[in-house]
């Protein structure tokens, strides 16, 4: 049994938590305080507004603790805003800049595609590491005011990429040296024994019903924690096992397809 935290300061953390809870051998902790952060063996930083998350994290002294968490080598996964948070460099940040955890050698551009009207969903080719879960060759990815990865450093492996459409190619200089990538991705394994394992994706996977990315991440946490996935474990109850907190809140949104109110298969 491993405890996986979902940073619950703002954003789509409940969607991540709901998907993680479906995995055997995983208990999920919503992380808002230092104590909660200390109790987990892997952390998901969800989509949302990265400025908001950074400001709330700063207010409660979570930034240095998150950096410690990162340097301890525990697996961490950032989606969208979470990816920005983990990047070494970001452009398109609010004036005055914003706090980044850094540590991941990539440069990202916030809100790369522009206004919400340019947000989109698509199917992307699945990377090798995902195929072992027996899914299809492609996976669904939802890009919402998404960031793009402009540069990757050494040790960063591209897991998938998205090719810009003609309309999305900005005549402005910023895109000159970069033809495709936005999506991003990487799974980083370091050589030097400190074994950092991070996945970052600029799209949202949490509003889809596809569990593969969560399985991939859970496997990283199991491996790091020296455990293997428990085959015959009861599916986790929706309760927050570690904090015991049971907020009287309604259930979560379903996963939608393309048409109005139609559920995804």
């Amino acid at each position: 049994m491993v405890a996986i935290g979902v940073l619950a300061l703002q954003g789509s953390f409940r969607e991540h938590a709901a998907l993680l809870r479906r995995l055997p051998g995983v208990s999920v902790v919503e992380v808002r305080t230092p104590e909660e952060l200390m109790s987990v063996q892997g952390l998901v930083i969800p989509g949302g507004e990265s400025t908001t998350m950074a400001l709330v994290a700063e207010r409660w002294g979570l930034i240095p603790l998150l950096r410690d968490f990162l340097s301890s080598g525990k697996p961490i996964w950032g989606t969208c805003a979470g990816m920005i948070f983990l990047a070494e460099r970001a452009e398109g940040t609010k004036s005055g800049g914003q706090a980044l955890l850094g540590g991941l050698d990539i440069a990202v551009s916030r809100n790369f595609f522009g206004a919400q009207i340019n947000s989109f969903e698509t199917q992307l080719g699945a990377p090798e590491c995902l195929r072992k879960f027996g899914g299809e060759d492609v996976f669904r990815a939802v890009f919402i005011r998404a960031p793009a990865v402009l540069q990757t450093g050494s040790g960063v492996e591209e897991l998938a990429h998205y090719t810009l459409t003609e309309q999305e190619k900005d005549p402005a200089e910023r895109l000159l040296h970069f033809v495709c990538v936005p999506l991003l991705c990487l799974c980083l394994t370091s050589t030097g024994g400190c074994g950092r394992l991070w996945v970052c994706v600029s799209f949202h996977q949490e509003p889809t019903s596809d569990l593969q990315w969560h399985q991939l991440f859970a496997d990283m946490v199991f491996a790091h924690a020296g455990q293997t996935a428990v085959e015959q474990q009861a599916i986790q109850s929706s309760q927050d096992a570690l904090t015991g907190r049971t907020p009287a809140r309604p259930a979560d949104l379903p996963v939608y397809g393309k048409q109005h109110l139609a559920l995804a298969q």
């Binding site: 947000s119 969903e121 698509t122 199917q123 080719g125 090719t163 889809t208 939608y256 397809g257 393309k258």
Partner: peptide, 10 residues
Amino acid sequence: AQQPQQATFA
């Protein structure tokens, strides 16, 4: 990969 689709309900 197929063409991206904007403004889907999701």
